[in-house]
Design a protein around this nucleic acid. Sequence first.
DNA 1: TGGGGTCAG
DNA 2: ACTTCTGACCCCA
Length: 616
Amino acid sequence: MSAMRAARNDSRIIIHFDYDCFYASVFENENPSLKALPLLIVVTCNYEARRRGLRKLQLIHEAKKIVPDLVIVLGEELGRFRDASKLLYKHLAAFTWSGKVERLGFDEVFMDVTDLVTYNLDILNHHDLPHSFFQLKREDPTIGFSFDATQIAGHSFPEDLNDPHRDQDALPTSAAMPKTKDPLLLRLILGSHLAQHLRWSLEEEKGYTSTVGISTNKLLCKLAGNIHKPKAQTTLVPPYESSTDSSEACESNVTAFLDSHDIGKIPGIGFKMSHTIRNYVLSRTAEFDEGLIYGETKESVTVRDVRLFPGMGPQFLESLLGGPGTERGIGGKAWNLINGIDDSEVQKAKQVPTQISIEDSYKSLSTMSEVVKELRMLASSLVKRMHTDLLEDDKDSDAASAKRWLAHPKTLRLSTRPRPPINADGTRTRTFNRISRSGPLPNFVFTLKESVDAVVEKLVQVALVPMFRRLHPQQAGWDISLVNIAVTNMVEAASSDGKHGGGRDIGRMFRKQDETLKEWRVEDRDVPPDPIKCASNGDQVQDSIETEPSAGNEALHIVLTGSEDMIFPTQNSVDENGVWEEDEEDEENREVCSECGAVMPGFAMAAHERFHYLHN
DNA sequence: TGGGGTCAG
DNA sequence: ACTTCTGACCCCA
């Protein structure tokens, strides 16, 4: 029987933070006088509200002013929340030694504090636990805080110290008890005091209160934090394992805690999986088709119901949830979650996101001019987001305002959500989901010499519109309810500690980028050395791009010429009426440089754009 | 790598 | 009605 269950690993101490009403707190911190007022922020709004000029994330106070006369519109200010989120995240990250700090959305953070706890456990004076000192810095024993190591800070689960689940003998009772029975309890006690210190610090220094959970993995500490909601913390205390000792059977607190949860409340078991499991346990598949789904679920299925259901186990869950397209080993993973087992690591702080995307939804987009207009808006937001998120001050450079890219996304993706094409015979329409096309991100988006608008316009014309055409080859007839554009496949640039001549050092840029940006290399050795046709205004610039010095091949040099003054071509674009201006001669493998209007074979475009990038 | 899916806040 | 917008990860071909 016990062979079925995967072993629990409780060697870590994890803290989960959830900032209390984060969005409202951001406003309060920007304007402290709001703290005295009841504050409500509308997070979303329907199309009618939008039609009347309302936007999401508006203060209700302002929204009220708007509705009567439809005047004020609050801008797209997701940025302030993102900024606040990053600020708090960095504040917390500064406390860690391992760097294991992971943000989940704007208002949640996981921290793995195992190393701090272990260190402080080692230096603990077991003869005077009530007067302990938590050392925050390994190198400086004076930085830290005093605490009572015989007590959990804040709430615990189970709350009641006389709870039968609580192993009283495990309590570290000061000098009388030389050794604690359960080392996990002491580790959690240390974790709870560290968590409390971090909460205080967050409130004192940043003005944000938070709700926190402390346990041994991400799943448990996230759920434990929910027990006491605003401005509080909860530690899930041992025993974490059930004991079947002859003397006294004792149920695991983990099991007792998890069992009461609805199966869909377990992080990692989402909408689809919880419905599949629920349907099975309730054996009421039919009624869900009758339309009861969308109301509150009639009968809740708890973790306990699932865990104890006859035949339930990892193998069964695999057969229930598994299948083509599903995550491999999903059964075992789900079973682990149900048993409070979650070995997923707290990710280390990431310097750059793996993706940046912008999207908006619409009642209906059915003409090219509408689409192009929206693509412009979205692309503009995207480019600005790239600037704020991927650009940092270049400390290597003398220029005061010099910037450098932290990462170069390689791929551009356009997604849409087509409205179900109305079927002729029945009302039957298939599900709402997105379709997408992606391709290389043109390098000119990294230009800093041109205005954002100019870059955006080029991006729309040379990349986004053609992509849209691939996505919706029909000339008309489509009806789009959502458009998303994203940059992905980030390639991080080398860190700036190289401390050389700065970004002006072309050679260094080449070396650095050659390591990562393989697609920028001229790879095709059969590239004809004949000069690329390129419109020119006379002052020609030359540059060479060398390939990797590989396998006895001499470096390939291509001479490129170009001009910055050319207007990019309008072919393959869309006119004011949204009508395609087809250049139906369209040679498949010829491309037009958006920078200078040069026409050249597709394979040469990457090198050509690189040329512009370096010389802009 | 491109296209699609699930999950989460 | 499973919303909105964003991001991370996983699967398959």
